[in-house]
Simulated assay, not measured.
Amino acid sequence: MLYLDNLLLNENNEWRNWSGFMVAGTYEPTHEREYYAIRNAAALIDVSPLYKYDLLGQDAERLVNKIVTRNVKKCDLGQIMYSPWCDENGHMIDDGTIWRLAENHFRITAADPNLRWFEDCGFGLDCLVADVSNELAALALQGPNSRPILREVTTGIELENIGYYRLASTTIAGIPLTITRTGFTGDLGFELWFSPEYAERMWDVLMEVGYRYGLLPAGMVALDIARIEAGLLLIEVDYISSTKALIDSRKSTPFDAGLAWTVALDKGSFVGRKALRAEAARGNRWALVGLEIDWPVLESLFAVQDLPPLVAGRASREAVPVYNENGRQIGQATSRTFSPILKKYIALATVESEFAQEGFPLSIEVTVEFTRQQCPARVISIPFYDPVHKRK
């Protein structure tokens, strides 16, 4: 959506494919300043490749409630909910946000294409499902200074009145847009949704004002570190969509993925409810946990080879085994990073549920000079980083 501006700004010339669009991996030669902009100032991230669907009609609420595991009858006008949605076996297809734009008008954002699934779920209902992905550009303005920046450029709204996971309509430089109090960084932040024809103008206005607040463009590398610190799942990394999993054992339910709080079994019928109700009764085999790796031991493992711990820098999406105290593999760590703000090496992991208690001692596989080693780790609660100002 912002290819020309990003092409000129991308000093590193590192690109990633996101749903057929090119997005910057990093804008600068390294990601460090972009990461610290998210945490200490403000960052502007192009998230336009997200899929967006509008559901309109007399049965819109009924259809959305059939698709997702949350109870959207509790979603007020102008409110946003996060939810996964599942197949008939209770396995997760995707996850995203659900907005209530009007009584009979919802919008769903998603990582993967879902038009056919939504239409199939809506068969026989009075609801139009429209793919509006290419009709909306999206910029994520994230970080502690995101609100002061927006305060200077928006008209007709009080930003302090936009609650966490709420939305409002406004204009910036005469451009109509929707602002949502959402993001993928676990920090104070907003996402701006508007017509793509205004994308470059919107970017320029925000950067011009934001420069005084330390605003920097940020790419996917910095975003990946921030979302792990926030304990946020990434599809095809921390769980595999049931539509893409090659074998059943690769599929996950919301209970496996630490999303039990999103499953409203008492709301009535929805896709996957029967299977999820049965799982809730018998207990889930897997659980999502946070891991904090023992840094002194990690240092010693690398010191044997006269090396520093080679784990700082970019996040890793390569799954590695997790073991119990007896050396038996009981899961895998799917996202790992050294957290610059916490000064800890952390991971998101899926483990057998009996080992998911906070403080439980485990170990994680690390490779030192081509040799696989086990390093102690302990289970900790997620999110790893949860600043108070995120919800204020």
Results as ranks from 00 to 15, higher is better:
G20E: 05
F21E: 15
Y27M: 06
E34H: 04
Y36N: 13
A37H: 04
L44E: 06
G57H: 02
G57Q: 01
V64S: 05
K66E: 06
V72W: 04
K74N: 14
D76P: 10
G78L: 01
H91A: 14
M92K: 11
F106G: 07
I108C: 07
C121G: 06
N134I: 11
L136F: 11
P148F: 05
I149L: 09
G156I: 04
L159P: 08
N161R: 14
N161T: 15
Y164C: 01
Y164W: 06
T170I: 01
G186P: 06
F194Q: 01
G214E: 01
R227E: 08
E229Q: 04
D238T: 03
D238S: 02
I240H: 10
T243K: 13
K251S: 03
W261Y: 14
A280N: 12
W286G: 05
L288Q: 13
L291V: 01
L291Y: 00
E292R: 00
V297Q: 11
E299Q: 15
S300H: 14
P309M: 07
Y323F: 10
G327W: 02
R328W: 11
T337N: 06
F338V: 00
I341H: 05
I341D: 04
L342D: 01
I346T: 00
E354G: 09
C375G: 07
Y385R: 15
P387Q: 09
